[in-house]
């Protein structure tokens, strides 16, 4: 079975993640949607690595993981700070960007 199928799988997961980001009001859930998108990209990278028989895809996936870890730390800290200030983590509440 061709490894390209994993790339299709990655596309589907990416779409599900993006839909979650748009649909969910809970900031943590939306954030998990972002994580899923990152993982889908990772999966695609690993699959490409396999298809091309080169290591660079895996290295990229590794770096993405590291950056994602850092991102999660900061993102969750932001969510906690927002929660402290507003007692809610709903994405619909902070409408201060309203023009």
């Amino acid at each position: 079975m061709n490894a390209i199928n994993f790339v299709y799988l990655a596309a589907i997961l990416f779409s599900i993640g993006s839909a979650a980001v748009l649909l969910r009001r809970n900031a943590i859930v939306a954030f998990m949607g972002v994580e899923l998108m990152l993982n889908a990209a990772n999966l695609a990278l690993v699959a490409f690595s396999r298809l091309h028989g080169q290591l660079d895809g895996q290295i990229m996936a590794f770096f993405v993981m590291v950056v994602a870890a850092a991102e999660v730390v900061v993102g969750l800290a932001i969510i906690i700070a927002v929660f402290r200030a507003r007692q809610t983590i709903s994405l619909d509440e902070p409408a201060e960007l309203k023009g």
Binding site: S18, L23, A30, P94, A95, E96, L97, K98, G99
Partner: peptide, 18 residues
């Protein structure tokens, strides 16, 4: 008119991006 686009909803912005 363009102000209406800036409704302050993060998810709308995300939708715009996507």
């Amino acid at each position: 008119a363009s102000r209406r686009l800036q409704n302050g909803q993060v998810r709308t912005y995300a939708a715009t991006m996507l």
